[in-house]
Amino acid sequence: MIPIETILMFLAASVALSFAPGPDNIFVLTQSALNGRKAGILVTLGLCTGLFVHTAAVSLGVAVIFQTSALAFNILKIVGAVYLLYLAFQAFRAGSTRFEAKGNTKLAWQQLYSRGIIMNITNPKVAIFFLAFLPQFADPNRGSVTLQIIVFGGVFIITALVVFSLIAWFAGFLGDWLKGSSKAQVVMNRVAGTVFAGLALRLVLSER
């Protein structure tokens, strides 16, 4: 059984890491501001779904591949950067129509959710981060390391879900203001496009 003090220490570290500025919470913030709180929460759910994949990868040892293989790391990195550039292109083209569109809302929600998943799983640094972070709190003397990593991964996912949802909620106030100004919508879309392009550049330049 994992001691409560270890869980609390891990929880504190997870909260701090979730609030620290990074691609995921910046992504949630911009999507919430552009599309509203529900959109930000849907993106958050997608990101957390991606974290399930990373937790499974670490617990099964798959993430080691990305730490030891430069080719695997670079391929996933390029895929992630291309996707971010695609999002940047969409944002620059969006103008002020995003808030006014009344089309297929269900499809839009599905796109936001899948956007979060893709954003997360195509970032090899998340897999490597989990590989470096989760095992630090596991102890072979307490039983199955794999099971402990799954528990810690679950705690981190719940923490990220709460923190990112809070970010989405408060960013939604910015979205409420943007709805009343078409000019502000255009500016915010340009800002979002720039953020996506910057995240793509950061991902391309990242090293293992």
Rank of each mutant, 00 (worst) to 15 (best):
V186L: 11
G80C: 08
R190P: 00
I41M: 11
L174D: 05
V145M: 03
Y86I: 05
V126I: 15
T49A: 15
V126F: 01
L85R: 04
A12R: 07
F137L: 02
Q90T: 12
E100L: 05
K183E: 09
V195W: 02
W109I: 00
G103C: 04
E5C: 11
W169H: 11
N25D: 01
Y83A: 04
L71A: 15
Q67F: 10
A184F: 06
V204N: 05
F99N: 13
L8R: 08
V151N: 09
R208K: 14
I78E: 11
P21I: 02
G154N: 11
V145C: 02
T146Y: 07
Q148F: 06
I117Q: 02
A39I: 04
A168H: 10
A88C: 08
F133V: 01
S114T: 11
A88Q: 09
A192V: 13
V79P: 01
F52P: 01
A171T: 11
V186N: 07
S182C: 05
F89N: 09
G175H: 15
W177N: 06
Q90G: 14
D24W: 00
S18A: 15
A16G: 04
G36T: 05
L134D: 02
L29W: 03
V155T: 09
S59C: 03
L85A: 09
I157E: 01
S32C: 02
Q185S: 09
V126A: 08
N104C: 05
V191A: 08
F66I: 07
F66Q: 13
V162T: 07
F89D: 05
L147D: 12
L29T: 09
G154R: 09
G40S: 13
W169C: 07
M119I: 08
A184D: 06
T55C: 10
V195D: 04
A33R: 13
G103F: 04
F170P: 09
S165R: 10
R98Y: 08
L34D: 14
P124A: 14
L71W: 15
A16D: 00
F196W: 15
A72F: 06
G36H: 10
L178G: 03
Q31G: 06
K106C: 07
I41Q: 06
L112W: 09
G198D: 02
I4S: 10
Q136C: 04
A197D: 07
W177R: 13
E100F: 03
T6Q: 12
I167K: 04
K102F: 00
A13E: 00
Q136A: 08
V79L: 15
L161E: 00
L199Q: 05
F137V: 02
V126P: 00
A101N: 10
A197V: 04
V204I: 12
L29Y: 03
G172Y: 13
L107E: 10
I75G: 15
T6A: 10
I65T: 14
L76C: 13
L131Y: 13
T159N: 00
S14I: 01
F173P: 04
A197K: 07
I118F: 12
W177V: 09
A101D: 06
G143N: 10
N189K: 11
I7H: 06
